[in-house]
């Protein structure tokens, strides 16, 4: 396993930016993500079904987006961060062949609970796929 950060609350400053994370959007990620989250909605694994719905290809399900958001924040804070919430607003779809780039920054700090709030967005070629925030308690 690769070495991971273990971000301490005291090391975090307001406005700190997270390392960008670029994720290639593939059929494997979309369909694998749907099945790994037990979401068998046809638009997530069957291109013909997605076409019927007016989409050019299969599109990423929300539960995969949530997983990728956890990955983005988790890679920054490391395995000792504890997620309190994960709030997202959905934008344009993620289709195969695209890339999504996550950017984020620390927008709130609460010393009493050692909680940092990260505001983030995941953007693809059509615009923001996801915007939102994650509150994480740090050691």
């Amino acid at each position: 396993m690769t070495a991971m950060n273990t971000k301490q609350f005291n090391d975090v400053s307001l406005g700190e930016t997270l390392p960008e994370l670029n994720i290639p959007i593939t059929v494997a990620l979309i369909t694998g993500g749907a099945i790994a989250t037990r979401d068998y909605f046809p638009g997530h694994h069957d291109k013909d079904a997605a076409n019927e719905l007016g989409s050019p290809h299969v599109f990423m399900n929300i539960l995969t987006t949530n997983g990728l958001v956890e990955r983005f924040v988790g890679q920054w804070c490391g395995p000792t961060g504890r997620l309190q919430n994960l709030k997202i607003k959905l934008g344009v779809p993620n289709y195969p062949g695209d890339h999504m780039t996550f950017t984020g920054e620390v927008t709130e700090l609460d010393a009493e609970t050692r909680t940092a709030v990260v505001s983030l967005k995941g953007k693809n070629s059509m615009g923001n796929h996801v915007t939102g925030s994650v509150a994480v308690v740090l050691p």
Binding site: M4, A36, G67, L68
Partner: peptide, 16 residues
């Protein structure tokens, strides 16, 4: 098993 597969697909590497 389900957790490990989820992590594999999402690219989550947290040993927890």
């Amino acid at each position: 098993a389900m957790v490990r597969q989820w992590c594999e697909v999402m690219g989550v590497e947290n040993p927890l």
